[in-house]
């Protein structure tokens, strides 16, 4: 299958500290890649670099064959190919649910409002939230908001979904409803790059697991090998910290 995302030896520093260096990764169309690692290992920063919310110091990022350049008009065009969902949902508080979802398709992609709304309603229906279309974000629970944020990203028809610890801010009982939506999308064959701390979920969704530590890929492999036969001591130790589950 064709490669949709190629990361070639990228490096990033904050002041003098390496966030990551010489990081390379490629993702094929339809592949689900899950990145795990201890806090501060650079995994969220890595996702943010992919759509240019953070700059990289060296290396290059190719998305669908196009080079991601910083500070150019092209970056807006490339961002349309990347749907990102954040830990804290970040819906726009002054817009209704439906308005939140259709804002970018209508304003950025100049799609017909009626058509965008119809598609939005279809997607809302699928995540069980069509009755909330006229509500405002503050009237929704965390899990509901996160499902809306996923729909909002989907309506831009992105090539790749970047999910940045989307359940980390949720109450435990709401984690499942969000993860089920992601699993649903995974089965549709969407390309996804997921950063998470939910190991059970990672196991269920991943085609490939990546363990990131101190800005380097320490280990990668299929979920079976990754969880049952970790090769490095660092990954063994990391997985052990979840062992009470």
């Amino acid at each position: 299958m064709e490669e949709i995302l190629t990361v070639k030896k990228i490096s990033k520093k904050y002041e003098d500290v390496d966030v990551f260096s010489d990081l390379s990764l490629s993702v094929k169309k339809g592949e689900k890649v899950v990145i795990v690692g201890p806090s501060g290992c650079g995994k969220s920063t890595f996702l943010r670099c992919l759509n240019g919310l953070e700059t990289i110091d060296e290396g290059e990022i190719l998305i669908d064959g196009e080079k991601l350049r910083q500070d150019t008009k092209e970056i807006y065009h490339i961002r349309e190919k990347l749907g990102m969902v954040f830990q804290s949902y970040d819906l726009f508080p002054h817009l209704s649910i439906l308005q939140n979802i259709v804002l970018a398709p209508v304003r950025v992609q100049k799609r017909d409002k009626k058509e965008a709304e119809a598609e939005a309603m279809e997607l809302l229906e699928r995540v069980g939230l069509s009755s909330k279309k006229d509500n405002y974000p503050r009237q929704l629970s965390g899990g509901q908001k996160q499902r809306v944020a996923i729909v909002r990203a989907l309506l831009m028809h992105p090539e790749i979904l970047l999910l940045d610890e989307i359940t980390a801010a949720l109450d435990p009982e709401m984690v499942r409803e969000v993860l089920e939506v992601v699993l649903l999308l995974a089965r549709e064959g969407r390309t996804m790059l997921i950063v998470t701390h939910e190991m059970q979920f990672a196991k269920a969704v991943a085609d490939r697991m990546i363990f990131l530590d101190e800005g380097r890929i320490v280990e990668e492999g299929s979920p079976e090998e990754f969880f049952t036969h970790p090769r490095t001591d660092r990954l063994k130790k990391f997985l052990k910290s979840f062992a009470y589950e």
Binding site: G52, L103, V108
Partner: peptide, 21 residues
């Protein structure tokens, strides 16, 4: 800050982010 970032992540440019968000 994340309101700006969420706007940019959706493909809005700087002017659109200010105008609509």
């Amino acid at each position: 800050v994340i309101q700006y970032e969420a706007s940019y992540a959706l493909g809005l440019n700087r002017i659109q982010a200010y105008r609509f968000v």
